[in-house]
């Protein structure tokens, strides 16, 4: 388990991360989302022991991470701009990592390189941005660490490759309790992979919850009431987070238990009623809007 308690980091006068408290459980995909400059990279760099927090505590499996090689053997950090040695080939990078990580799996590396059809003897400097990302992920998976910190790693991957990586992550999660922590500014990218998400805004953590909990508690309902029914009383009781009316069609986003909401709706004798799935984006827009944040400004 990764635990961050009241972690703060300043860069000069700028507060990059402000009193962030976070628990990341094992075996789940954690998505760290936020705009550019929200503090995602800084937070991941602190998780990786690159940066020392000004205050607060970061522990991975109960061990302090900063200047602790034993702790660092448990994770692999993929930076937003991954570093490769000058003129190095993937094999040379793999050999280097092999000396660093005790559980490094060379056969896994070779297998993945083959599956991703990357040339092991070619200089990494001649790889495209996407190929470099793929290589980083392969090296990270071959390192066989419990955790992997991915900073904007899915940017630059094509949809097929992204899907491939996601399934690799899923396989490792099942096989060995692998825990990826993925930082991104793109909600759509994380939607179908994350189990838990944390939203950073201006260095502070706005929320951190299981995606299923968020999704189970918030619903998008489209409903047409019978013409002689006045829904104002019902709408007052529902307290929708968002409400839109086009002709006789109401679109409501409401919080609460789905069955109870349905029962309530039926009181209005609807001629049409449908519950639609919400995108992660919509969930955040509505849920953070309640907290007083204009999420559209935060995310876009």
């Amino acid at each position: 388990m990764i635990e961050a308690v009241n972690v703060t980091k300043h860069f000069g006068d700028i507060v990059a991360v402000d009193r962030v408290t976070l628990h990341i459980e094992e075996g789940k995909v954690f998505g760290l989302i936020g705009t550019n400059g929200a503090g995602k990279s800084t937070f991941l760099r602190m998780l990786s022991g690159i940066l020392r927090p000004d205050s607060g505590l970061i522990e991975i499996d109960g061990q302090s991470v900063f200047e602790n090689p034993a702790c660092k053997e448990n994770f692999f950090h993929i930076s937003d701009e991954a570093f490769f040695f000058l003129n190095a080939t993937p094999d040379e990078m793999a050999r280097f990592y092999e000396t660093c990580y005790p559980s490094y799996d060379r056969s896994r590396y070779e297998d993945l390189m083959q599956r991703f059809e990357l040339d092991r003897k070619r200089k990494v400097s001649t790889f495209s941005k996407g190929m470099k990302k793929q290589l980083s992920i392969i090296l990270g998976l071959a390192a066989n660490t419990k955790y992997m910190f991915c900073d904007e790693t899915f940017d630059g991957l094509d949809p097929v490759m992204r899907q491939g990586v996601k399934s690799l992550f899923a396989q490792d999660m099942t096989d060995r309790g692998f825990t990826p922590i993925i930082a991104s500014h793109n909600l759509r990218e994380l939607e179908d992979i994350c189990d838990t998400v944390g939203l950073l805004y201006k260095g502070g953590m706005l929320l951190s919850e299981d995606l299923d909990d968020i999704k189970g508690d918030i619903h998008k309902i489209q409903i047409v009431f019978s013409s002689n029914y006045d829904p104002s009383g019902l709408l007052e009781r529902l307290k929708p987070l968002e409400q839109e009316k086009r002709g006789s069609l109401y679109t409501l986003i409401v919080k609460g238990d789905q069955d109870e909401l349905k029962k309530l709706m039926l009181e209005g004798d609807p001629v049409f009623m449908e519950t639609l799935p919400l995108s992660l984006e919509e969930i955040f827009i509505t849920s953070t809007g309640v907290e007083g944040y204009d999420i559209k400004k935060i995310i876009y």
């Binding site: 022991g49 690159i50 940066l51 660092k72 053997e73 994770f75 950090h77 930076s79 990592y97 660093c100």
Partner: peptide, 16 residues
């Protein structure tokens, strides 16, 4: 002096 390298060497399990 390079952020990329500083991040790289800072994250691997080697004492600085």
């Amino acid at each position: 002096h390079s952020r990329q390298e500083a991040d790289f060497y800072g994250s691997i399990p080697v004492m600085r």
